[in-house]
Amino acid sequence: MGTLFVGGALTLTLGALAYPSMLGLDTVSTSTDRIITNTQWGPLTEGDRDFVVKVRAAGLWEYPLGQIGLQKGTSKAVLTASQHLIDGHALLDDTCRKIAPMLNITIPNVASPQQEGFVTQLKGETGAQFDTDFANILRMTHGSIFNTVAKIRSTTKNSLVRALADQANDTVLDHITVMEKTGLVDFNSTIFQQTTAPKLPKSDLTPPAPVPGQPQVVLTPPPNATSTPVDVNAITGENSQAPK
């Protein structure tokens, strides 16, 4: 796959909605605004569906990377940023796992090869190199998705997706902020990477569909989480039957 920072610096079926081909970057239709189903919480578009998948996939690599950061980070700021990754993505994942079956969306159990590649890279680093690449990779990836969150929040007509976008907006902004507070972000390189990232094969950008019958991966929030969960029951007005 190759790293983005040189030199270490990185588709409605009766069963379920078809698995998105590329996390919203390349969908079944040429328009992410195409309505693929109508739900009691509002119409669901391709973009809405892909957004839920994208948020789930993000947590599947950033949550464990937060755990790694707590073990390998050498500064208080990197340790704080790592804790925010764990807290924020655990609660985003809780929302994804609740609303996905309500909206008949299939969500992955594993992140994309590109995302897993970031984890592999950072697992192999230590000391100042780890801290620097950790901050820059995560600032770049969060910066890349920030505009997507804003677009979904401003255009979706589905109340469940809107709630997830609200939560994601707060979480992504928080994570951008804590990465910047490390003092390690190279803004020129990071912004260049997030705006002119190289085109990768679809296979690198697509998280694999979950294996039928495989237990769903759960990102458990810590007891002292700094993020606020979404009250899905308050939105639906009924008890959710989604898995906890």
Rank of each mutant, 00 (worst) to 15 (best):
L122E: 05
G88D: 15
S21I: 00
G237T: 00
V161Q: 03
S203W: 09
L219K: 03
T30S: 13
T228F: 05
A81H: 01
T30C: 01
G24P: 08
L12W: 09
H142T: 07
D131R: 06
T196M: 12
V149Q: 07
A135S: 14
T226C: 00
T39Q: 07
A9T: 12
E238N: 02
I191V: 14
Q83I: 04
K157N: 14
S82D: 01
V53D: 08
A58H: 11
Q115S: 14
I191G: 00
Q115I: 02
S29I: 02
N104H: 15
D186P: 08
T126N: 14
L79C: 04
G69A: 02
L91E: 04
V230D: 00
M1E: 11
T228I: 15
D170L: 12
F5C: 02
L44Y: 03
G8K: 12
I105Y: 01
K202L: 10
I105D: 02
L60V: 09
I86W: 00
S112F: 07
S154E: 13
G8T: 12
V232S: 08
L122W: 05
V52I: 02
T196F: 14
L10I: 03
A135N: 05
L184F: 00
T80F: 11
P229Y: 03
S203H: 05
T39L: 04
K72T: 10
M22S: 09
G143S: 05
D174N: 13
L23I: 15
